Simulated scan of single mutants.
Amino acid sequence: MTEKYCIVLVTAPETDARSVARALVQQDLAACVNILPNLTSVYRWQGEVEEDIEQLLVIKTRRDALEALKAAVVEVHPYELPEIIAVPIVDGLKGYLDWIDESVLLQ
């Protein structure tokens, strides 16, 4: 069992999801980003109940890259307060976890 790795969940508008995902992979902060389309988000923002169609980014990375990844999301994301939630990966296929190690490079 390990908590060296994590999955980071980020929602984004359809128009921006791909560019956020590409930025994270290009900056070596994520090994892979899956984009799940047509997510309906209902949330409270500035006292009002809002509803938007978004896309969910499922980001595979290492925990030691998390702070840099959060900073990169904030920089490229169009929202004033983007959703960034990290969930530990407690186990996985060794070869896949090794691939995350090889793909995520801290500057």
Rank of each mutant, 00 (worst) to 15 (best):
T2C: 10
K4L: 11
K4H: 11
K4A: 14
C6P: 00
C6Y: 02
C6Q: 09
L9C: 06
V10A: 10
T11Y: 10
T11E: 10
T11A: 10
A12V: 10
P13W: 07
P13N: 12
E14M: 07
E14V: 13
T15L: 10
T15P: 03
D16V: 03
A17H: 10
A17E: 09
S19W: 08
V20S: 06
A21C: 11
R22W: 06
A23L: 05
L24I: 05
L24T: 03
L24G: 00
V25C: 06
Q27Y: 02
D28P: 04
L29F: 00
C32F: 03
C32A: 09
N34M: 08
I35Q: 06
I35C: 05
P37D: 14
L39F: 07
S41Q: 10
S41D: 08
S41I: 08
V42W: 08
R44M: 06
R44D: 01
R44L: 07
W45D: 10
Q46A: 12
G47V: 00
G47S: 01
E48N: 13
E50A: 09
E50L: 09
E51C: 14
D52C: 09
D52M: 08
I53K: 13
E54I: 08
E54W: 06
L56A: 10
V58F: 11
I59M: 04
K60Y: 08
K60V: 05
T61H: 07
R62G: 01
D64E: 15
D64L: 05
L66F: 15
E67P: 01
E67Y: 05
L69P: 10
L69D: 09
K70F: 06
A71N: 11
A71E: 14
A72R: 15
A72V: 00
V74F: 05
E75W: 04
V76L: 03
H77C: 07
P78C: 11
Y79G: 00
E80T: 12
L81A: 14
P82M: 07
E83T: 07
I84E: 00
I84R: 03
A86L: 09
A86E: 15
V87G: 06
P88M: 06
V90D: 11
V90H: 13
D91Y: 00
G92K: 09
G92R: 10
G95F: 00
G95P: 01
Y96W: 08
L97G: 04
D98T: 13
D98C: 00
W99D: 04
W99V: 04
I100S: 03
D101Y: 04
E102C: 01
L105K: 15
L105N: 06
